[in-house]
Measured scan of single mutants.
Amino acid sequence: GHYRIRINGREFEIRGISEEEIRHLEEALRNGADEKILKEIVDRLRG
């Protein structure tokens, strides 16, 4: 998958993330885990 997200007015492209991972992120966001989720995304993109 290849997705664009906007955070604090800046747009980011996220590549190589699966539909299942996105559902997991959405679930966590609904549970209020904003900073933790951003850290997970950044860590994943770093490799």
Rank of each mutant, 00 (worst) to 15 (best):
L25C: 01
E40I: 07
I7R: 00
E13H: 10
I7E: 00
E21A: 08
L38H: 01
R10I: 14
A33E: 07
G47V: 12
N8Y: 07
G16F: 10
E20S: 11
G1R: 06
L25T: 01
E19A: 13
E40V: 06
D34C: 06
K36H: 13
E26P: 00
E26C: 04
L29W: 04
H2Q: 06
I5N: 01
E40K: 05
H24T: 13
G47T: 06
R44I: 09
E19H: 11
R4E: 04
D43V: 05
I5C: 09
E40H: 04
G9T: 01
L45Q: 02
R30D: 08
E27N: 11
G1W: 04
G32H: 10
E27V: 06
A28K: 07
E26Y: 07
I17W: 05
K36L: 12
R30E: 07
R15N: 10
R30C: 05
R46S: 15
L29S: 04
E26S: 05
I14D: 00
G1S: 09
R46G: 15
N8C: 05
A28L: 15
Y3H: 03
R4L: 15
S18M: 04
F12R: 00
E26D: 11
G1Q: 09
G16T: 06
E11S: 06
H24S: 13
E20T: 11
G1K: 11
I5M: 01
L25V: 05
K39I: 15
E27D: 11
I5R: 00
E26K: 07
R4S: 10
E19M: 11
E35D: 12
E19C: 08
L29V: 14
E40T: 07
N31R: 10
N8E: 06
G9Q: 02
I14F: 15
R15D: 08
S18I: 03
E13Y: 13
K36Q: 13
E21M: 06
E19F: 11
R15V: 15
E40G: 09
H24I: 14
N31I: 09
L45R: 01
H2Y: 14
E27Y: 08
R15G: 05
E40A: 10
E26T: 07
R46E: 14
I17R: 02
E11K: 01
I17D: 02
G32Q: 07
E11Y: 13
I5H: 00
K36M: 09
G1L: 06
I7A: 01
D43M: 07
I14A: 01
E19G: 10
